[in-house]
């Protein structure tokens, strides 16, 4: 699946199974939020972010309205292994909004801003809005020029 944003001219590419996988994880943690990291690579021309896999946060605190992950040593080692072994790296984040929609919150915005100060300036944020019956809606977002843009 490819989604793009015409205003900024960037795209993402991902496998449709990704959302099924996330829904199963979401149910396990219901009614709390859960989340993790999106990994993959950028295309040669740096216009497409290709999501290859996700990793659920190894250490975290959560509630029905919040999710906080801690990037501990174990997590860092996983990133190093994947980078050296499979050539894929961190592209952004995902988390769930149980019983809610996929609109990003002010907290989510601040989190993206924080990430953009590091090694990648355009982190992706996938939000999955769901309830017990299934995914209600989901959104792929990207932080660009101090704003959040949605991929359609």
């Amino acid at each position: 699946m490819v989604k793009s944003n015409n205003k900024i001219g960037l795209e993402i590419e991902y496998d449709d199974n990704l959302l099924n996988e996330l829904f199963e994880i979401a149910l396990v943690h219901y009614p709390n939020e859960i989340g993790g990291y999106l990994l993959g690579k950028y295309s040669e021309n740096k216009k497409t972010a290709i999501i290859v896999k996700q990793i659920t946060a190894l250490e975290y605190l959560n509630s029905p309205v919040s999710f906080k992950h801690i990037v501990n040593e174990e997590t860092k080692n996983v990133f190093v292994k994947l980078f050296e072994g499979e050539g894929i790296h961190y592209l952004g984040e995902w988390h769930t909004h149980p019983n809610s929609n996929s609109r990003y919150s002010q907290t989510d915005f601040k989190a993206l801003k924080k990430i953009a100060k590091g090694d990648i300036e355009n982190p992706i944020l996938l939000i999955v809005g769901f309830d017990k019956k299934g995914i209600k809606d989901y959104s792929f977002n990207v932080f660009f020029n101090k704003e959040v843009y949605k991929y359609e």
Binding site: G35, Y42, V71, T107, A111, I115, I120
Partner: peptide
């Protein structure tokens, strides 16, 4: 529009994101 791209400040070593809070 045509000039935009994903920016990476450090592509030679592994990217470690910061711990973070979402809502």
């Amino acid at each position: 529009e045509s000039k935009n791209l994903y920016r990476v400040n450090n592509s030679s070593s592994v990217i470690i994101p910061p711990s973070n809070q979402f809502g």
